Computed example of a mutant assay.
Amino acid sequence: MLLQKIELTNYRNYKKASAEFSPGINVFIGENAQGKTNLMESIYVLAMARSHRTANDRELISWSEDFAKVTGRVEKRSSTFPLEIVVSKKGKKAKLNHLEQKKLSAYIGHLNIILFAPEDLSIVKGSPSVRRKFLDMEMGQMSAVYLHHLVQYQKILKQRNHYLKQLAQNKGRGDLLYLDVLTEQLAAEGAQVLKDRFRFTKRLQEWARPIHAEISRNQEELEIVYSCSIPVESKEDVEQLYQDMMDQYAKNRPRELEQGTTVSGPHRDDLRFYVNKKNAQTYGSQGQQRTTALSVKLAEIDLMKEMTGEYPVLLLDDVLSELDDERQTHLLKAIQDKVQTFLTTTSLDGVKRNLIDHPRVFRITSGEIEMESE
């Protein structure tokens, strides 16, 4: 999978800009606050229909303008097609092959990306919500079915929490039959989400474990565990997972009616990383946490290829400066001649140039993109 070109209109500090990319490594170079990360973000927005930096889409629109537009051309083994995202004060529109998509879930997954930025180190040491977001963003690209069940789960969860809050305010008085209906619907969608998350975690560990061992020179063993807030008897049987969720909701009902919220389910779960049997979040050194995060990101490349049949596009946003020489070497060797890569940096001085074969370098200055001669 390749991103051949991109065009920006009124996007942050880019009034009008375009670039054609190499299938290998593309480097965005320039001083801070010139637009390197904005350009990287625009690729993410084109793929995911949302920013990884802000939840407010209006921030993507250039000052005093009414809309922002990102268009790109994607090449896959079987086809080449355009993608387009338009953000305005009225909302957001996504087009696939010139056709507007009524649901973003039908759009996402046509340009698969993996982003690795300094904040991604928080996958290991951050909060459970960070890791749940990681699961949902990566899995949502790989599986439209997972994304459908997740969206439905979140929709029903919102309805159920709203009704539980009403019941709590009325001290449990209300239509409990309606609560039963919402509970059954939530468990049905939640069981599908759980099954896919368990399966993804297992495959992620299988790819990440040898990478982690290699980086640590066989001194460390990585284990990735999906920590479920509901006791489960099976990680594969959807019917059993559904029943386990229903049993837990029945057990939690008095507490939920008192607190006015759903206290268990996929929205409360976590992903845990163990290095040599110890929780890396609590007991891991900074080096171990970074090795774990790097191993997970590199594992995603092969896992995404396994699940979709195409290698993803890799975005490295100012991450090399956060890695020591050894980890930087492993990263660059792993991606060389394998995946199309976009890399931001203020200078190539700190990058192991001998590990980058013929990069295409773009100089970014005040929202202008200029390709340097190769």
Results as ranks from 00 to 15, higher is better:
8 L>H: 03
9 T>L: 15
12 R>C: 00
12 R>N: 04
20 E>K: 09
21 F>R: 01
28 F>H: 02
29 I>D: 02
30 G>L: 06
31 E>K: 15
32 N>F: 09
35 G>T: 08
43 I>H: 00
44 Y>G: 06
47 A>T: 07
47 A>F: 05
48 M>H: 04
58 R>Y: 13
59 E>H: 11
60 L>N: 05
60 L>Q: 08
61 I>Q: 11
63 W>C: 00
73 R>P: 01
79 S>T: 15
81 F>R: 00
85 I>C: 04
88 S>T: 12
97 N>E: 10
97 N>M: 13
99 L>F: 10
100 E>S: 14
111 L>G: 02
113 I>Y: 02
119 E>M: 07
119 E>A: 12
119 E>S: 14
123 I>P: 02
128 P>S: 06
130 V>W: 08
131 R>Y: 05
132 R>L: 04
136 D>G: 08
136 D>I: 07
137 M>L: 14
141 Q>I: 08
142 M>K: 03
143 S>R: 05
143 S>D: 10
144 A>N: 11
144 A>H: 10
146 Y>M: 07
152 Q>N: 14
160 R>N: 11
161 N>P: 11
162 H>I: 02
170 N>T: 15
177 L>Q: 11
180 D>I: 06
181 V>A: 12
184 E>S: 12
186 L>P: 02
191 A>Y: 04
193 V>W: 03
194 L>C: 07
196 D>A: 11
201 T>P: 03
201 T>M: 08
202 K>D: 13
205 Q>E: 15
208 A>P: 00
208 A>E: 02
211 I>C: 07
213 A>D: 01
214 E>L: 15
218 N>Y: 15
223 E>H: 08
225 V>D: 03
226 Y>N: 04
230 I>A: 01
230 I>R: 03
232 V>R: 00
233 E>L: 12
235 K>I: 15
236 E>A: 12
241 L>E: 01
242 Y>A: 06
242 Y>L: 13
245 M>H: 07
254 P>M: 11
258 E>C: 06
258 E>I: 11
260 G>F: 03
261 T>E: 13
268 R>M: 07
268 R>Y: 05
268 R>N: 06
268 R>C: 07
274 Y>S: 10
277 K>Q: 14
283 Y>K: 05
285 S>G: 09
285 S>E: 04
285 S>V: 04
289 Q>V: 07
291 T>I: 14
295 S>A: 15
297 K>C: 10
301 I>E: 05
302 D>Y: 03
304 M>H: 02
304 M>V: 15
305 K>I: 08
305 K>M: 08
309 G>W: 02
313 V>Y: 02
316 L>Q: 01
322 E>Q: 09
330 H>F: 14
330 H>V: 11
332 L>R: 02
333 K>H: 12
333 K>Y: 07
336 Q>H: 13
337 D>N: 14
339 V>E: 03
341 T>P: 04
352 K>A: 12
359 P>Q: 05
361 V>G: 02
361 V>Y: 03
364 I>C: 08
366 S>M: 10
369 I>P: 03
369 I>C: 06
369 I>Y: 00
371 M>S: 12
374 E>S: 14
